[in-house]
Amino acid sequence: SHCAGCKEEIKHGQSLLALDKQWHVSCFKCQTCSVILTGEYISKDGVPYCESDYHAQF
């Protein structure tokens, strides 16, 4: 499978399933500020955001 963030193949190591896609753990980050999302996040149109950036933009 391929990472939804960087589009590279996910080989051995940690990956996560979010928004119905596979991601490298380090690629699942806020679209705006690039903080790596480990806990709470909000998505809009399949794109992840941290809570503060989501509320600031939408």
Rank of each mutant, 00 (worst) to 15 (best):
residue 32 T to H: 10
residue 7 K to F: 09
residue 28 F to L: 08
residue 53 D to Q: 04
residue 48 P to I: 05
residue 56 A to C: 14
residue 20 D to P: 05
residue 42 I to R: 14
residue 23 W to T: 02
residue 17 L to K: 07
residue 44 K to A: 13
residue 46 G to P: 01
residue 8 E to I: 09
residue 13 G to K: 03
residue 9 E to H: 11
residue 20 D to A: 09
residue 49 Y to D: 02
residue 33 C to P: 02
residue 20 D to S: 10
residue 27 C to M: 00
residue 52 S to K: 11
residue 40 E to S: 07
residue 57 Q to K: 05
residue 5 G to T: 07
residue 31 Q to T: 08
residue 5 G to I: 05
residue 4 A to R: 08
residue 55 H to Y: 08
residue 14 Q to N: 07
residue 47 V to R: 13
residue 55 H to E: 13
residue 51 E to R: 10
residue 23 W to M: 02
residue 45 D to E: 11
residue 1 S to C: 03
residue 53 D to A: 04
residue 9 E to T: 11
residue 16 L to E: 08
residue 49 Y to M: 09
residue 25 V to T: 14
residue 49 Y to K: 02
residue 8 E to M: 13
residue 3 C to W: 00
residue 57 Q to P: 06
residue 50 C to M: 02
residue 57 Q to T: 07
residue 39 G to P: 05
residue 45 D to W: 05
residue 31 Q to P: 15
residue 47 V to W: 08
residue 2 H to P: 08
residue 56 A to V: 10
residue 25 V to S: 14
residue 15 S to E: 15
residue 40 E to I: 05
residue 30 C to L: 00
residue 50 C to V: 01
residue 13 G to I: 05
residue 47 V to N: 09
residue 57 Q to S: 15
residue 10 I to S: 04
residue 56 A to M: 05
residue 10 I to W: 02
residue 3 C to T: 01
residue 19 L to G: 11
residue 8 E to L: 10
residue 50 C to Y: 02
residue 58 F to Y: 02
residue 11 K to H: 14
residue 51 E to S: 08
residue 9 E to I: 06
residue 26 S to A: 14
residue 4 A to V: 09
residue 15 S to Q: 13
residue 14 Q to H: 06
residue 44 K to F: 06
residue 57 Q to N: 15
residue 47 V to G: 06
residue 38 T to A: 12
residue 56 A to F: 15
residue 51 E to Y: 14
residue 16 L to G: 09
residue 7 K to Y: 13
residue 10 I to L: 14
residue 22 Q to T: 14
residue 55 H to D: 12
residue 55 H to C: 15
residue 42 I to S: 14
residue 27 C to W: 00
residue 35 V to L: 09
residue 41 Y to G: 05
residue 2 H to G: 04
residue 57 Q to F: 15
residue 38 T to I: 11
residue 33 C to F: 00
residue 4 A to Y: 15
residue 44 K to V: 07
residue 32 T to R: 14
residue 14 Q to R: 09
residue 11 K to E: 07
residue 24 H to W: 00
residue 33 C to T: 01
residue 16 L to R: 15
residue 40 E to N: 06
residue 33 C to R: 03
residue 46 G to R: 05
residue 29 K to R: 10
residue 46 G to L: 04
residue 46 G to Q: 08
residue 17 L to P: 15
residue 7 K to A: 13
residue 54 Y to N: 08
residue 22 Q to S: 13
residue 48 P to H: 05
residue 40 E to H: 11
residue 52 S to M: 04
residue 34 S to T: 05
residue 49 Y to Q: 04
residue 42 I to Q: 14
residue 15 S to V: 13
residue 10 I to R: 02
residue 52 S to I: 09
residue 45 D to I: 04
residue 34 S to V: 00
residue 24 H to T: 00
residue 57 Q to M: 11
residue 19 L to D: 15
residue 44 K to R: 11
residue 19 L to R: 05
residue 35 V to F: 06
residue 56 A to G: 12
residue 13 G to S: 10
residue 18 A to R: 14
residue 32 T to L: 07
residue 53 D to W: 00
residue 25 V to M: 14
residue 42 I to D: 13
residue 16 L to T: 12
residue 41 Y to I: 04
residue 16 L to I: 13
residue 22 Q to D: 12
residue 23 W to H: 03
residue 29 K to C: 10
residue 11 K to A: 12
residue 38 T to R: 12
residue 39 G to Y: 03
residue 9 E to C: 08
residue 18 A to S: 09
residue 22 Q to N: 09
residue 46 G to V: 02
residue 3 C to E: 01
residue 3 C to H: 01
residue 8 E to H: 14
residue 9 E to D: 11
residue 40 E to T: 05
residue 57 Q to L: 11
residue 52 S to W: 04
residue 58 F to W: 09
residue 12 H to I: 07
residue 18 A to K: 15
residue 58 F to C: 08
residue 43 S to P: 10
residue 55 H to F: 12
residue 44 K to C: 03
residue 14 Q to F: 02
residue 22 Q to P: 13
residue 26 S to V: 11
residue 41 Y to P: 05
residue 43 S to G: 12
residue 26 S to H: 10
residue 1 S to H: 06
residue 9 E to L: 12
residue 4 A to N: 15
residue 56 A to I: 06
residue 44 K to N: 07
residue 3 C to L: 01
residue 28 F to T: 03
residue 43 S to V: 12
residue 7 K to I: 06
residue 33 C to H: 02
residue 57 Q to A: 15
residue 16 L to A: 07
residue 38 T to Q: 15
residue 53 D to P: 02
residue 36 I to G: 09
residue 9 E to Y: 07
residue 48 P to N: 06
residue 27 C to Q: 03
residue 31 Q to G: 13
residue 46 G to Y: 03
residue 36 I to S: 09
residue 26 S to F: 12
residue 22 Q to A: 13
residue 44 K to S: 11
residue 25 V to C: 14
residue 28 F to V: 03
residue 53 D to R: 03
residue 11 K to L: 14
residue 38 T to D: 11
residue 58 F to S: 06
residue 30 C to V: 00
residue 30 C to R: 01
residue 56 A to K: 15
residue 36 I to A: 09
residue 55 H to I: 11
residue 14 Q to K: 08
residue 49 Y to E: 03
residue 33 C to G: 02
residue 9 E to R: 11
residue 50 C to W: 00
residue 55 H to Q: 15
residue 23 W to Y: 13
residue 45 D to K: 08
residue 27 C to K: 02
residue 47 V to P: 03
residue 14 Q to G: 08
